[in-house]
Amino acid sequence: MTDTIKNDVLLELKDYSITFKTPDGDVKAVSGMNLTVKRGERIAIVGESGSGKSQTFLGLMGLLAKNGQTSGQALLEGRDVLALKPRELDKVRGKDMAMVFQDPMTALNPSLKISRQLTEQLEIHRGFTARAASVEALDMLKRVGIPDPTRRFNLYPHELSGGMRQRIVIAMALLTKPKLLIADEPTTALDVTIQAQILDLFNDLTAEMNTALLMITHDLGVVAGLADRVAVMYAGRIVEEAPVDELYENPAHPYTAALHAAIPRPDQDVDELVVIPGRPPNLQHLPKGCNFSPRCPKAEDDCIDGPPQLETVAPQHCAACFHPFPRLEELLTHA
């Protein structure tokens, strides 16, 4: 893979926001988000539930609830996906960008055979005949590691296990060789033993097809082996963004550090799990200053006065914090 392709920008979110209109007022689920995804790049989006990480990408796919509204720009290969008419959007989603959902038990239609659910987007987006689509789909089932695919092809979803179903959902998303694959917590609903296999599958297949992967997760531990870069979201904003190793070694934002500390480690004997005190703020009534300030151990007076902007703290590393943690080297030199 040459650098020129690697550097080619696939998706660019510019001042991207999502607002939900509710009877009790507007709720801002995502506010002023900027993110760049390059071709074939793998980015993990990390955050607690309610941080807006899923909504961000449901909005990109045009799948928000009826009261949801996006603003800003989302340029996929230079074209603003948010401005597309429904008919044009349907030519993009499922073809250029695809999504794997959280719960494989409900993501498949229970009343249609696997075959029907796999072949339809090939017929629509690629103009395949039914026969050609079946051949292609069977091949994809083999690649996602489904044993005896010809037999399983004609089953209904309820006749398959959860892991098997998630493989099928992945196959479904990758069938049209999308340029961007969004995976929304694809392993949370699965057994731990199967989680690793599914993550490997994502790794292998996206590399093979040069598909950019956006992995949404609440588990910083999942991210390590999988992503090139990590963006941490809190209350609808990206609070820190860095390459994986850099983020692990030098978390700058106190929230990232707290998430980091909250990963249970088998090698450390702890009496209790580390938790972040408090809970995420109500998106309807965000604090005036930094969203994290009410829970932040490092909060100072200026944190309440205005929201911090995402600023570069090191090469390729940004954080939105007035009082970021110092880098590891700095600590060492000081000591």
């Binding site: 009410p294 490092k298 909060a299 007076d301 944190c303």
Partner: peptide
């Protein structure tokens, strides 16, 4: 690193 407790 001290936050005004009243304000908080």
């Amino acid at each position: 690193m001290i936050l005004n407790p009243a304000k908080r």
